[in-house]
């Protein structure tokens, strides 16, 4: 049975029909990526799973339970964390405080344990723990956003455009960390415009085009698919 199962969801942004009958699955232990152009409905899909947006129809099930009507702030306790597009770290709060917010629903001991784990994955966050998040570089803020999402000890971590606006060397680093987190047992649902990087670490992928799934399959197959190469890999 799949961990996350999305079945025929439709999502409207005001009058814009952003997601049109999208279905996909994420199995435990996988890295699944949604790729596609700007405005294809990738972020909308993630925000809907996170409870920030409501699907007008269709079903979303996590570990066999419906997420219909579950408020966004209850998702973390169910084991779903979203690392949002644009990082959205709390600029005026310190790195340490940002991480503490990530563990808001967890006990003090769990927070301590997760903090140690996050500092291990992101040593730079430990160095900068007393600095306000707003003073960090873009790459460091991305690491903080990921660390913060990790603090809730999620079973499923959703990442929305983690490579956005980062230098190539940092993109490499971020992706290797994502892979590492996955190897440590966190299931990953990744939304990316950098299709090449996303496909290179994912097990499976779905291609979104104007709100619909146009293709899906093993990431390695899609990486060599002629249509995907033309449309998303620039080759």
């Amino acid at each position: 049975m799949s961990m996350l199962s999305i079945n025929d969801i439709n999502v409207y942004y005001g009058s814009i029909h952003a997601v049109k009958g999208v279905s996909f699955d994420v199995n435990e232990g996988e890295i699944v990526t949604l790729i596609g152009a700007n405005g294809a409905g990738k972020s909308t899909t993630l925000n809907t799973v996170a409870g920030l947006l409501k699907a007008s129809s269709g079903s979303i099930e996590f570990e066999g339970e419906s997420l219909q009507g579950v408020a966004a702030h209850r998702m973390v306790s169910r084991g779903i964390a979203l690392c949002p597009e644009g990082r959205r770290v709390f600029q005026n709060m310190t790195v340490r405080e940002n991480l503490d917010m990530g563990a808001f629903t967890r006990s003090e001991e769990e927070a301590k344990e997760m903090r140690a784990r996050v500092y291990e994955s992101f040593p730079r966050l430990k160095e900068r723990r007393t600095q306000p998040a707003g003073t960090l570089s873009g790459g460091e803020q991305q690491m903080l956003a990921m660390g913060r999402a990790l603090m809730s000890k999620p079973k499923l971590m959703m990442l929305d455009e983690p490579s956005m606006g980062l230098a190539p060397v940092l993109v490499q680093e971020i992706f290797s960390i994502i892979k590492q987190l996955n190897e440590q047992g966190t299931t990953i649902l990744l939304v990316e415009q950098n299709a090449r990087m996303a496909l290179s670490i994912a097990s499976r992928a779905y291609v979104l085009e104007t709100g619909r799934v146009s293709m899906s399959g093993d990431a390695s197959e899609l990486l060599h698919d002629e249509r995907v190469r033309k449309a998303y890999l620039g080759a």
Binding site: A50, G51, L52, A71, A72, H73, R74, M75, V76, S77, A81, L82, P84, R88, V89, F90, Q91, N92, M93, E97, D100, M101, G102, F104, T105, R148, A149, S152
Partner: peptide, 17 residues
């Protein structure tokens, strides 16, 4: 701290639980 988080970004605060 949750209050300060809310004052900065309500959406992100919700994602924290």
């Amino acid at each position: 701290k949750a209050m300060r988080a809310c004052s900065e970004d309500k959406g992100a605060a919700q994602l924290m639980g």
